[in-house]
Design a protein around this nucleic acid. Structure first.
Length: 932
RNA sequence: GCGGGCGUGGCGGAAUUGGUAGACGCGCCGGAUUUAGGUUCCGGUGGGGUAAAACCCGUGGAGGUUCGAGUCCUCUCGCCCGCACCA
């Protein structure tokens, strides 16, 4: 080879890696396992195998983790670096519906293509560990984890999950009883569990309950449960969606179809039980602060109090039925300022509260509120609407009768769905009070404007806040909160409460291409979990996979599995015929635990062997997890939740799954629109004098995400073809910091390609003869080498690959002038470049006379003494402006440096006519002379 | 509206802790090699100014702290991301 031919080298190299299985990493106990090395688990967020394949934006993170993996191998780690596919999901199903091809076929074809593309980039995955969430051997364990959730409950006292059998034991022993409303109560601490509710009335022993009653009680505690809840129903997709899958505009994130609220019986996961720990344990992980904050906000913890308001009996017969109205407030200290109450339109007490006179108005308002989409509600954020129910409540602190309204600015889904309105100290209540002319009372001192003009929402000192029993006047806000909460508690009127925005996770989807639930429904509605030994529950073969989509928001959901053959749908156990659950799990399910399966992907007896799991995961979980920020709350929160359940049940050894998270930026690309605003193929754009043309017509340019829709995708296959994978890898890393978004520019790629060509020419002459000498390098070259080793090592450690490459380019440029390349420089150079451009380095390493792969050779060290210069150049400033440069011995003392600085001709000229006031010497850097 | 991030040459970016702003690359300009194009090699390249220097200006804008500010503080403008009636 007389010139650099990346295609030849890369093909040979990848063949050899495959034949030698170079990057397969053994588990503890496997042959070849080296227990003396520390471990490093570096993971990419695994992709959905889409039919269109990769564009150059996708592998940005994969290249980065590959460099880390290779660097870590060279610095002595056992590296787990796997790849898999999140392969359930809608596109394959939709393709199947349209083309009549089974989704498994499409999925496997797409995976094969993506694996090919990834291999071509020279990514050093242990392909033996490849998994897909759609593998039956994989989703068997997804179903198994679901059973763990189903068979567990959250022990509030211990703040951890336990097998539900433990709860049953305690019920059977009589330690716990069942209250009239199905709550489980502690007999010993009777009444203390809920100060508001008082002592449980009509509590029963466990054995007094009939089996179906027992099941119903347990269902209220299981971490996976069926519930009739208002869900996001998307008729166009024919499925329900999680809150997280619905946009602010009230449409589906996938496909942008309208979504309606509708009560349906669905599987839910009790993620809210873990709210406290999911929020608190964010302190344990090394994640970008922005992501941790997003999760905290999503969980939305807030401290406050529950307060009960009695209903005044304006209407005698109604008040009999009405219990108190319970509200949640974060400002119990403003209770004296509550001048009205508001219930959400959907609040269950609205009907019983509404007076005859208001019945029609209330009904009309509720109808409107119901038909409003979230968009409408949002558009009207500024203007408040509502109607009075006609009923009144009694403010418990001052006995005042206050009107009860319904308004859609109060949401049923948060807190109790009812609020006490304090217009003096809450902006929303203030706006509402102004709109409907309700009284505004100031109870906290503060604010720049009169309370009638603007609510004062900050802290302050209470006024107008005393009764015969409790005095808040003069107390600062935190004290007032504490005092009133104690008082409410003592009176049985309220109690301190922590509230979360987080809702339970809606876990059913009406789709075919997802994990079937390991659940059976009995003839009397009883639920029966499939026995662990019977797993997996495989998807039945079917010809028609379509969900029943509709334009009608009231169309009933009909999951595709309802058309499955009876032989699959019906299961007979002990003479009883059960029907399988016909919903499937959402796409998030499979990605909740794949990082665990990678530790031991072929294990048939456990989701992952205990030893393998603890070896790769301890002590802080995945050591480096790289992916896009778009998964900040969904995937990362769900996975943490599952992980914590598995941790509580003793199946995994770490409290958190991902110790360190890194979000890579996006690769943006220029997109071009013609005069009609239609996007045109970015590859066919011509540039003339700063103007852009498509087929001769001028077009406008702007920056967007790379992809099909903007017609600006660049294929990694094309880049590999033209420049080789090493060049593509270098370019993607050289573009800028990994965590920043930056624009792709195919024009710029030649820079790093030239670099590799120049590397080649430094190693070989025109005839392809190696230009290596065993002579020692000259002093300057040796010093530069060691400086470069330090720079590159530091940059590798902090994943600053763009500057690492710059350092290597500088070193390489310096080597161009040498006639022969000293081996002592060539070898460390190849080693440093190897993680970044592995193919060409494997080749050069061989040419240097080495047998094995460069991948496991020790990373070069630098000699500290080679970094110290004998003499250094220092800058001399006069009044902060650079006026001269001096060269002084590295060990010169400050006096000597000062003397040299003052002696410099140019400096002296600048100081002429001035008096030196002060001289600041920064050793090794500069001298600043203050003079006037 | 609230919260977070970012603004540096024609372009991507560098400056890890307050200490020579613009490393490295693209592009551009000039030269060499080449039949030509491409490749390759050498030199130049923030703006103004000069024959060349000197010198002046310069990190979105305006102030401030400091011997010294891209970096710290205050205000302000622009862009990006997240949340959005969460009581």
């Amino acid at each position: 080879m007389t010139s650099y031919e990346p295609q030849t080298i890369e093909q040979q190299c990848q063949d050899r890696w495959r034949q030698n299985n170079t990057f397969a990493v053994p588990n503890p106990g496997d042959p070849g396992f080296d227990a003396t090395r520390p471990k490093f688990y570096v993971l990419d967020m695994f992709p959905y195998p889409s039919g269109v394949g990769l564009h150059v934006g996708h592998p940005l993170g994969y290249i980065a983790t590959d460099i880390v993996a290779r660097y870590k191998r060279m610095t002595g780690y056992n590296v787990l670096h796997p790849m898999g596919f999140d392969a359930f999901g809608l596109p394959a199903e939709q393709y199947a519906v349209e083309h009549g091809v089974h989704p498994r076929e499409t999925t496997e074809k797409n995976i094969a293509n993506m694996v090919r593309q990834l291999k071509r980039l020279g990514l050093s995955y242990d392909w033996d560990r490849r998994i897909a969430t759609t593998d039956v051997a994989y989703y068997k364990w997804t179903q198994w984890i679901f059973l763990q959730l189903y068979n567990s409950y959250f022990n509030e006292g211990e703040q951890r999950a336990e097998p539900i059998s433990e709860l049953v034991k305690r019920l059977e022993s009589g330690e716990l009883d069942v209250a009239y409303d199905g709550r489980i109560v502690d007999v010993g601490a009777s009444g203390a569990m809920d100060a508001l509710g008082g002592p449980p009335i009509g509590a029963r022993k466990w054995h007094e309950l009939k089996p179906d009653e027992q099941d119903a009680v347990l269902a209220e505690y299981r971490l996976a449960y069926l519930a009739e809840v208002p869900v996001n129903w998307c008729p166009a997709l024919g499925t329900v969606l999680a809150n997280e899958e619905v946009t602010n505009e009230g449409r589906s994130e996938r496909g942008n179809h309208p979504v309606f609220k509708r009560p349906l019986k669905q599987w839910m996961l009790r993620i809210t039980s873990y709210a406290e720990r999911l929020a608190g344990d964010l302190d344990l992980v090394d994640w970008p602060e922005a992501i941790r904050k997003m999760q905290r906000d999503w969980i939305g913890r807030s401290e406050g109090a529950l307060v009960d308001f009695e209903v005044a009996n304006a209407d005698a017969e109604r008040s009999e039925a009405s219990g108190p109205i319970r509200v949640f407030t974060t400002r119990p200290d403003t209770l004296f300022g509550a001048t009205y109450m508001v219930l959400a339109p959907e609040h269950p007490m609205v009907d019983e509260l509404t007076t005859e006179a208001q019945r029609a108005a209330v009904a009309e308002y509720r109808k409107q509120a119901e038909s409003k989409t979230d968009i409408d509600r949002q558009a009207e954020t500024k203007t408040k609407t509502g109607v009075p129910t006609g009923a009144f409540a009694i403010n418990p602190v001052n006995g005042q009768q206050i009107p009860i309204w319904i308004a859609d600015y109060v949401l049923m889904g948060y807190g109790t769905g009812a609020i006490m309105a304090v217009p003096g100290h809450d902006e929303r209540d203030h706006a509402f009070a102004k709109a409907f002319d309700l009284p505004i009372v100031q109870v906290i001192k503060g604010g720049d404007k009169p309370i009638e003009d603007e609510a004062y929402t900050g802290p302050g000192v209470n006024i107008n806040s005393s009764n015969d029993d409790v005095i808040l006047d003069g107390l600062p806000t935190p004290d007032a909160k504490r005092k009133i909460t104690q008082w409410l508690n003592a009176k049985g009127l309220g109690k301190a409460q922590v509230q979360y925005k987080l809702r339970d996770w809606l876990f059913s989807r009406q789709r075919y291409w997802g994990e079937p639930f390991p659940i059976l429904h009995g003839p009397d509605g009883e639920i029966r979990a499939v026995d662990e030994a019977e797993l997996p529950v495989e998807l039945p073969p079917m010809d028609d996979f379509s969900p029943t989509s509709s334009d009608d928001p009231n169309a009933p959901p009909a999951p595709p599995l309802s058309r499955a053959p009876g032989s699959w749908k019906n299961v007979v156990i002990d003479g009883v015929t059960y029907t399988r659950e016909l919903n499937t799990m959402p796409q998030w399910a499979g990605s909740c635990w794949y990082y665990l399966r990678f530790a031991d992907p072929r294990n048939q007896h456990r989701f992952a062997g205990g030893e393998a799991e603890s070896y790769w995961m301890e002590p802080t979980g995945v050591d480096l997890y790289v992916g896009g920020a778009e998964h900040a709350v969904l995937h990362l929160l769900y996975a943490r939740f599952w992980h914590k359940v598995l941790f509580d049940l003793g199946h995994v050894t770490t409290p958190e799954p991902f110790g360190r998270l890194f979000n890579q930026g996006y690769i943006q690309a220029y997109a071009y629109q013609d005069a009609r605003g239609i996007y045109v193929d970015a590859l066919k754009i011509e540039e003339k004098d700063g103007q852009f043309f498509y087929e001769g017509q001028p077009v406008t340019r702007n920056l967007g995400k790379m992809g099909k829709s903007l017609k600006n995708a660049v294929s990694p296959d094309d880049m590999c073809e033209q420049y080789g994978a090493d060049t593509l890898r270098l370019y993607e890393m050289y573009m800028g910091p990994l965590d920043q978004s930056k624009p792709w520019n195919t024009r710029d790629i030649v820079g790093v390609h030239r670099f590799l060509q120049r590397v080649w020419r430094n190693f070989f002459d025109d005839e392809g003869k190696l230009l290596i000498t065993d002579d020692a390098p000259d002093d300057a070259t040796a010093r530069l080498l060691h400086k470069t080793i330090k720079r590159v090592t530091d940059d590798m450690e902090r994943m600053s690959f763009n500057t690492a490459i710059a350092a290597l380019i500088e070193l390489n440029n310096a080597l161009v002038s040498l006639k022969q390349l000293p081996r002592a420089v060539a070898e460390p150079f190849v080693l440093m470049l190897a993680p970044l451009a592995p193919h060409v380095c494997e080749h050069l390493w061989q040419q240097l006379g080495h047998e094995g792969s460069v991948a496991f050779v020790d990373w070069p060290n630098y000699d500290e003494s080679m970094l110290v210069e004998d003499s250094i150049q220092m800058v001399v400033q006069v009044l902060g402006k650079v006026r001269g440069r001096i060269t002084v011995p590295a060990d010169a003392d400050n006096d000597a440096i000062e003397a040299a600085a003052l002696g410099d001709d140019k400096v002296a000229a600048n100081l002429e006519g001035k008096t030196v006031r002060k001289v600041i010497v920064v050793p090794g850097k500069l001298v600043n002379i203050v003079a006037n």
